[in-house]
Computed example of a mutant assay.
Amino acid sequence: MEVRSVVLSPGEPYELRLTGRGARGYVWTWQVTGDADAVSVAQAAGPAGAAPPGAAVELSYVVRA
Rank of each mutant, 00 (worst) to 15 (best):
Gly49Thr: 04
Val57Trp: 03
Arg17Gln: 12
Leu18Tyr: 07
Gly25Gln: 09
Val6Pro: 02
Val63Glu: 02
Val57Cys: 03
Ala42His: 10
Arg24Met: 14
Arg24Ala: 12
Ser9Cys: 06
Ala23Pro: 00
Pro52Phe: 10
Tyr26Pro: 00
Arg24Trp: 08
Ser40Val: 07
Asp37Tyr: 05
Ala48Val: 09
Ala55Trp: 14
Val39Pro: 01
Val27Phe: 15
Gly49Phe: 11
Glu12Phe: 07
Met1Asn: 13
Leu18Cys: 13
Ala50Pro: 02
Glu58Val: 14
Tyr26Gly: 03
Gly22Tyr: 12
Val63Gln: 01
Ala65Leu: 01
Tyr14His: 05
Pro10Met: 06
Ala55Leu: 11
Glu12Asn: 06
Val39Gln: 03
Thr33Trp: 06
Ser60Asp: 01
Gly49Glu: 13
Asp37Val: 06
Arg4Leu: 15
Ala44Met: 14
Val3Leu: 13
Gly46Trp: 00
Tyr26Ser: 10
Val41Tyr: 05
Leu59His: 07
Gly49Gln: 10
Leu18Asp: 09
Ala51Cys: 11
Arg64Tyr: 08
Val3Pro: 03
Ala51Arg: 09
Pro52Met: 11
Val3Ala: 10
Ala55Cys: 14
Arg21Gln: 15
Ala50Gln: 10
Ala51Leu: 12
Glu58Arg: 11
Ser5Trp: 02
Met1Thr: 11
Tyr14Trp: 12
Val57Ala: 08
Glu2Trp: 01
Ser40Cys: 03
Ala55Met: 15
Ala36Asp: 15
Arg4Thr: 10
Gly46Tyr: 02
Leu18Asn: 05
Glu2Gly: 09
Ala36Ile: 13
Ser60Gly: 06
Ala45Met: 04
Met1Val: 12
Ala50Ile: 05
Tyr14Asp: 07
Ala51Gln: 09
Tyr26Ile: 00
Pro47Gly: 09
Gly22Trp: 10
Gly34Met: 07
Ala48Lys: 07
Arg4Glu: 12
Val27Cys: 08
Ala45Gln: 08
Gly11Ile: 09
Gly34Ser: 06
Gly11Tyr: 05
Glu15Asn: 13
Val6Cys: 02
Ala38Asp: 03
Ala48Glu: 15
Asp35Ala: 11
Pro47Ala: 14
Pro52Arg: 13
